[in-house]
């Protein structure tokens, strides 16, 4: 994956209440504000706080998105909750040249030990950042920064207006968390 001229498909894994759906929406709004085509939607189901949930993005800089179905073979997988790694096969369908972005307090070497060298890996201690910047361990906006560090699917600045729209008086803190994650995320190319 080198540019966004082609379709980029993203799958978010989180737990109900962690904001995976919100992040997917903010990302799509940012992409659309850049003149791109994008789609965001949740895995439709009875939402329950704490239960594993998924959300999806499709982004294409030049062509309308036409497929209306879950993202089963993502280019990028983002995992908001480290405990999901133990109970869900988050890399299911992840393309061979895909990217895995995880929130973890472990080192990148430890992440690589678990997932191997097949995918580009990006790791960030998003809980630490969210606690310090927001005062709560809600990592969805933090993980937007981690995603953009791993792959510039939109410009960082394009997230600002959608974040302001969504979070109003709390927007600045979320923007800070996003930007700090962009700096602190560590990335390892595949292979």
């Amino acid at each position: 994956m080198t540019d966004t001229n082609e379709l980029v498909e993203i799958r978010w894994h989180g737990r109900g209440g962690q904001g995976a759906v919100t992040s997917a929406e903010i990302l799509a709004r940012a992409a659309i504000s850049e003149g791109k085509y994008a789609q965001a939607f949740p895995k439709f189901g009875p939402e329950r706080r704490g239960a594993p949930v998924q959300a999806f993005d499709r982004i294409n800089s030049s062509k309308p998105i036409r497929v209306r179905a879950d993202v089963d073979e993502p280019d990028i997988v983002i995992v908001l909750d480290p405990t999901l790694l133990r109970i869900i096969n988050v890399t299911s369908g992840l393309k061979d040249n895909g990217i895995l972005v995880v929130n973890t307090s472990r080192t990148l070497a430890e992440v690589e030990a678990e997932f191997g060298t097949k995918w580009k890996l990006a790791a960030v201690d998003a809980i630490k950042i969210a606690r310090e910047e927001l005062g709560v361990p809600i990592v969805n906006t933090t993980m937007l920064g981690a995603l953009l560090r791993a792959f510039a699917v939109v410009e960082t600045d394009s997230l600002v207006v959608p974040l302001q729209h969504r979070f109003e008086r709390l927007a600045e803190r979320n923007i800070n968390a996003m930007k700090r994650a962009f700096k602190e995320t560590v990335v390892k190319e595949r292979g």
Binding site: A24, P42, F44
Partner: peptide, 10 residues
Amino acid sequence: GFYLTHVIEP
């Protein structure tokens, strides 16, 4: 339902 109602799009 959902396929349109819950989708963010341009």
